[in-house]
């Protein structure tokens, strides 16, 4: 049989319970209700201690879960980074510049041209021009489905930058549909040399090669003649 409530200490004990509860509310889970006497209040005191115990456990669980989630999030972010990196690599691969003839580079463009891709394409092309010393570059856009104002501007920018380096660009592979859109949109491509097919562009570039060679030779001949 439990003891009766010790009325003398009851106020003190209730105060103690209150203190413990407010500590727990403030986040301190290490406190427990101390009960020295066994009476009617002891049950409540023990129940409170069990509750605190449970709370501590739950909290631990949730912290673990949070850590788990954070780890997973980090993994996902890392994967995302890899994906972005791979996309960039792919983009670089998707704009291969190759030297096909003395002094002539070809860049076949396939697929949709957006800002980012054009950026990489342009940097690749310009670097290749510098590395190889080729002064003629053919951009073949046979594989580009549509040309809108933005794409046209990107093409213009590429051609203008190449010219600043000292190289001429020829754009080939302009389909009737693309020619129509360009004119309808009012895009001025007159400063760019355009050819219908890659073959035409190739013939033009090779003729230019011959022309400059011939000019230099004739000039040298003339100088020699003058000296004689």
């Amino acid at each position: 049989m439990e003891d009766k409530l010790d009325l003398k200490n009851v106020k003190q004990r209730i105060n103690h319970i209150e203190e413990v509860l407010s500590s727990v509310a403030a986040g301190d889970l290490d406190v427990r209700v101390d009960s020295t006497v066994e009476d009617d209040l002891t049950g409540i005191e023990e129940a409170i201690n069990i509750l605190i115990e449970d709370l501590t456990y739950e909290l631990k669980q949730s912290i673990n879960m949070q850590n788990d989630l954070q780890e997973k999030l980090k993994k996902i972010q890392d994967q995302q980074k890899t994906i972005v990196q791979q996309q960039e690599d792919l983009m670089e691969l998707s704009s291969p510049v190759s030297k096909v003839w003395d002094n002539i580079l070809i860049l076949p463009v396939i697929g949709t041209l957006d800002s980012q891709r054009t950026q990489i394409m342009m940097e690749n092309l310009l670097q290749k021009i510098v590395d190889t010393g080729c002064t003629m570059a053919i951009l073949d856009i046979t594989g580009v489905p549509t040309v809108d104002t933005q794409v046209a501007n990107h093409l213009l920018k590429t051609v203008t930058s190449a010219r600043l380096l000292g190289a001429d660009c020829i754009i080939s592979g302009i389909s009737p549909a693309i020619a129509q859109t360009i004119v309808h949109l009012g895009i001025d491509l007159s400063i760019i040399r355009t050819k219908a097919t890659l073959q035409d562009a190739m013939i033009y570039a090779m003729k230019q090669n011959k022309k400059s060679d011939a000019l230099i030779t004739s000039n040298l001949d003339e100088i020699e003649e003058r000296e004689e």
């Binding site: 940097e123 920018k157 600043l164 380096l165």
Partner: peptide, 9 residues
Amino acid sequence: QPAVAITLV
């Protein structure tokens, strides 16, 4: 340099 040309444009 290519970077200079791009920036100028």
